[in-house]
């Protein structure tokens, strides 16, 4: 299952809830303000680093670029995709759940 998260973890608990309620093996794509959850060294980074073993994390490149976040600032192991990649993930996974 593909989960999208569009909220900054500093603003709302959408990422935490997504991680609590997604099964191991899920794919999680951070979009819009959700991309701030991917920042290395932030207070919120543990949300992702604790789940890197059993979940695959992605961020939407256009949303990173718009916010001035270079890929060097991302937690290691997170993959960047564009909108085509977003669609491919949505096709590969049996359904999409949007955490807003």
């Amino acid at each position: 299952m593909l989960h999208t998260v569009n909220k900054s973890p500093f603003e709302k608990n959408s990422l935490q809830t997504c991680l609590r309620l997604s099964q191991p093996g899920s794919s999680i794509l951070l979009i819009e303000d959700g991309i701030y959850g991917a920042l290395k060294g932030s207070d919120a980074a543990a949300n992702i680093t604790e789940h890197l073993q059993d979940r695959q994390f992605y961020v939407l490149g256009p949303d990173l670029k718009a916010r001035g976040i270079d890929k060097s600032r991302l937690i290691d192991g997170i993959e960047i995709v564009d909108y085509d990649g977003f669609v491919k993930l949505a096709v590969e996974e049996p359904k999409v759940q949007s955490w807003m």
Binding site: M1, R20, L21, S22, Q23, K95, V96, Q97, S98, W99, M100
Partner: peptide, 17 residues
């Protein structure tokens, strides 16, 4: 529980928020 809800979400066909 959260674990039970994980399964409920996973087993649904359409999830609307």
């Amino acid at each position: 529980s959260a674990a039970e809800l994980q399964d409920i979400i996973e087993q649904s066909d359409v999830v609307l928020n």
